[in-house]
């Protein structure tokens, strides 16, 4: 039972990280970032390069410092990738006509190029990341959970909490929420749409980078490893209501548990079925998603 909950929560935290990033970008910048898969993979490769460098030059293959470095560099790398996406797709386009559709296409173009460039540099093979939480298992009574699972859940929860609090309390967070509501009005109270948008892209990039490093524990990093998280993240942010943090997290938990339960009691191949049925059910009853308030407000 505990194992089930643990695996559900692990999936939920991964999905939540990616989906919150997508949702954040959409709501503050007004652009659906389909290059999030590229951002995800970028962070993974930066972390991999770091680990490789440490192993080669200092023969460090595990330890707290290395884990910390891998996580941090993954996040920084992905944040930089987020800024690259912003520089290519957001800055030149944001005040042009038909920005949402053109931005979407531009991010798609970036993701096409990104995948191929990774292929050129790293080749099609998967690259492993070091096990940042060790390989031991935590025993609770008769059940046992891998440290990796516990670590993933804890780190994801803490980071999401920090981001939520930051959005609620700080000046930048207030500005970002103001920009979500009324970009023109925000412009008039001194919020630069360009700067704030880039910050939002960097933050959502960092979230994706964290997810990438955490997911890299299980699936390794490959040029196309961003596709699956991107799709699932998109679907979750859609079901959660684009722009709503609580809605997105709730949807991530729902879908994560749905996947864990389905995979345990039936076959793995039923997972997409169940997830889709769930999302379509949610969208049938709430076309704006679970927490969808923003769109109505923006009108």
């Amino acid at each position: 039972m505990i194992e089930l909950i643990a695996s559900g929560l692990v999936l939920a935290s991964m999905y939540g990280l990616v989906a919150v990033g997508i949702s954040l970008t959409w709501s503050s910048v007004g652009m659906l970032n389909l290059a999030q898969g590229f951002v995800f993979t970028f962070g993974g490769y930066v972390a991999f390069l770091f680990a490789q460098y440490m192993a080669k030059n200092f023969s460090i293959r595990d330890g707290v410092l290395l884990s910390l470095g891998v996580v941090l560099l993954g996040m920084i790398g992905s944040a930089i990738a987020g800024l690259i996406v912003g520089g290519l797709a957001f800055l030149p386009l944001h005040d042009r006509v038909n920005f949402p559709v053109r931005g979407l296409i531009a991010t798609l173009a970036i993701s096409i190029m990104g995948t191929q460039i990774f292929m050129l540099i790293f080749g099609p093979q998967s690259k492993p990341l070091p096990q940042i939480f060790g390989i031991k298992r935590l025993k609770i009574g008769e059940f046992s959970i891998a440290y990796g699972q516990v670590g993933t859940i804890v780190v994801a929860t803490v980071v999401l909490l920090i981001v939520t609090l930051w959005m609620r309390r700080s000046r930048r967070g207030l500005q970002m929420r103001a920009m979500m509501m009324n970009p023109l009005g925000a412009n008039m109270v001194g919020v630069s749409v360009r700067t704030t948008g880039m910050i939002a892209l960097a933050i959502s990039g960092a979230l994706a980078g964290l997810a990438s490093v955490l997911l890299g524990q299980i699936f390794f990093v490959s040029p196309t490893s961003g596709v699956q998280p991107l799709i699932v993240g998109l679907i979750i942010s859609l079901a959660g209501g684009l722009g709503s943090m609580p809605g997105t997290v709730l949807a991530a938990v729902l879908l994560g548990f749905a996947e864990a339960v389905t995979a345990r009691y039936t076959e793995q191949s039923f997972v997409p079925f169940v997830q889709f049925a769930l999302v379509i059910a949610i969208l049938t009853f709430k076309p704006r998603g679970l927490g969808g308030v923003l769109e109505d407000v923006r009108e």
Partner: peptide, 21 residues
């Protein structure tokens, strides 16, 4: 600005705070 360029989803307090840039 002309009309109401306020932030409808934020509370009044947050709206006011956003002016202190």
């Amino acid at each position: 600005p002309q009309g109401d360029a306020i932030f409808p989803g934020l509370t009044v307090e947050e709206n006011l705070a956003s002016g202190a840039y």
